[in-house]
Design a protein around this nucleic acid. Structure first.
Lengths: 192, 192
DNA sequence: CCGTTCACTCAACGCTTGTTGACTGAAATC
DNA sequence: GATTTCAGTCAACAAGCGTTGAGTGAACGG
């Protein structure tokens, strides 16, 4: 077993990051203490500071995406890609994503991270859509995905929390289809 | 001007509650301090404690809905009611709702309050829907509403934040229609 | 084998927080 | 008008937090 100085260091750093991700995902930024992270990683709180500088920077590192921007190119059309992506998320989010979602409403950095991730998905989606309001439609679809994921994974909304991902995707398919690929709806009924 | 003891007390309590709602809505539970609430209400921190007992109970009181369960009965059908309700929310949420949403992912009580409010809406919606999976469809529509509201009001998702509520409702109509009132979609394509 | 480096710990700091008890002065009661 | 009541303040406490600097011992390089 390698116990060189460099390896020990790398392993400790990794254990701290894993512990931080788990705790940030479960409790959010504010309720997670450096002391708790250190305890969960089996090290001294001071070591966390020495490695990451501050709680802030620990969070940034813990939340930094693993740079695997989910290769979404399937042979299927946009709708099926979208539904598949949703199914995956409903199957279980990685701690990194959970941590971002958990704190996005109360911590500025998490909000920025969430905004960036969601904007990325909106842009990717919009690129595959026709029409002038492609961007807005993509944003709405992404918001739908966000709401369903939150209701299913973090809020445990009764009928949603227990529903199997496949059934959710099935019920959602016509709506997603209508939102993404159907011809633009007529303007609002509000004659001047 | 009435300055009886009872009236002064009532007014102070109300000022504290209003300040608390605003701050809870802006910063969430953890980042809001009793001291900040007191300062914003122009009173001593100790008074807040004397009136509400604890930060916890202040939050519960501040978040307690005003018991106006939004009379949703219009002459229109379910879809238009839903879209109208969404439009209203996009026009601006009351501080009480904002405070609940803001902390629902990081504070257990806020999570419970949000779950309760969302479940209420799901039930009301499901009651107006036909079919076996009415509850699940209602939950999905509510999740959609939640996601769009969050993206629009709290996360400022670029294309969504600036879009007028009417246009959002317009683009969403076909999708909502498909989700709520169209015949049930066929089972997933996954032939054994 | 000796000196340096560095992962890691220990004990403490300064600060903010929620919370409390003693106090003050004006309104209420008689 | 004396006494009680109560809205509101003041000063302080205990606890927990992020953070720091000095110290220790084993791995490293010569």
């Amino acid at each position: 077993m390698g116990s060189s100085r460099a390896e020990r260091r790398r392993r400790s750093e990794q254990r701290i990051l894993a512990a931080a991700r788990t705790l940030f995902a479960e409790r959010g930024f504010e309720r997670t203490t450096i002391r708790a992270v250190a305890a969960s990683a089996g090290v001294d709180p001071a070591l966390v500071m020495q490695y990451f500088g501050s709680k802030q920077r620990l969070f940034e590192r813990a939340v930094r995406a693993s740079a695997a921007p989910e290769a979404d190119q399937g042979p299927d059309d946009v709708v099926e890609n979208f539904l598949e992506s949703l199914r995956v998320k409903l199957g279980g989010l990685p701690p990194v994503s959970q941590a971002t979602l958990r704190s996005m409403l109360t911590h500025p950095d998490a909000a920025a991270a969430a905004r960036s991730a969601l904007t990325d998905q909106i842009d990717r989606l919009a690129a595959a859509l026709p029409g002038d309001d492609a961007a807005l439609r993509a944003a709405l679809a992404t918001a739908l995905m966000l709401g369903v994921t939150l209701g299913h994974q973090m809020l445990d909304l009764p009928p949603l929390a227990d529903a199997p991902p496949d059934e959710i995707a099935r019920l959602l398919r016509p709506a997603v289809q209508a939102l993404l690929t159907d011809p633009p709806p007529p303007p609002d009924r509000a004659p001047a």
